[in-house]
């Protein structure tokens, strides 16, 4: 059993009961604060430092060779909790040689930023590492249409990111060497 201990407080001295010394101390504190540095940012001109793993706006990225990574598997569309992503799958045109073996590509890719909750599931689920939540955080528009990011906008926002795997290149090389798998 916990024992309750009643602490006897020391009675206040006369100078403490006037509260004046305490007030003076407080005044000193506030005054010294006047000469300390500012902790605020002048926002639109100065931007805060964004950490690496920040979850900003979801974007589509290209690999270092400038190729579209998304294969429109639609996993992100399925996993997206608020149903913000809509993908219209399409085929990769035959003419693009460097994308051999990639069968599909998004014909249209929309992320509705009015619905997006920045949960990052799409990034997590993407098998191609094509969708990333990057450091952009301020998004605004004058109409609802402007708030729906189309494919071009998504690639523009995403840019290219270094790729560790070159999955499709490896597959092509393997096939070229006669190794199907």
């Amino acid at each position: 059993m916990a024992k309750t201990v009643v602490l006897q407080r020391k009675p206040l001295s006369l100078s403490e009961r006037t509260y004046l010394p305490q007030i003076v101390t407080g005044l000193k504190t506030t005054f010294s604060n006047m000469f300390k540095g500012k902790v605020t940012l002048q926002y639109p001109e100065e931007k805060p430092n964004i950490p690496k793993n920040y979850r900003g706006i979801p974007t589509l990225v290209k690999d270092p060779n400038g190729r579209e990574k998304c294969v429109s598997c639609q996993l992100c569309e399925f996993v997206c909790p608020p149903k913000a992503i809509r993908i219209t799958p399409g085929a990769v045109p035959e003419s693009e040689d460097d994308r051999e073996h990639v069968e599909k590509a998004p014909q249209e890719f929309e992320i509705n930023m009015l619905r997006c909750i920045y949960c990052g599931y799409c990034q997590e689920v993407c098998p191609e590492e094509a969708i990333y939540l990057q450091d952009e955080y301020s998004l605004s528009g004058y109409s609802r249409d402007e708030m729906i990011n189309k494919k071009e906008k998504l690639y523009e926002l995403g840019g290219t990111l270094p790729d560790q795997h070159y999955k499709w290149d490896k597959k092509k090389n393997a096939e070229d060497e006669g190794n199907d798998h």
């Binding site: 506030t30 604060n33 006047m34 300390k36 540095g37 500012k38 902790v39 605020t40 002048q42």
Partner: peptide
């Protein structure tokens, strides 16, 4: 003054 005392501008 309030801004200065609170570390603002």
């Amino acid at each position: 003054v309030s801004a200065w005392m609170q570390g603002r501008v």
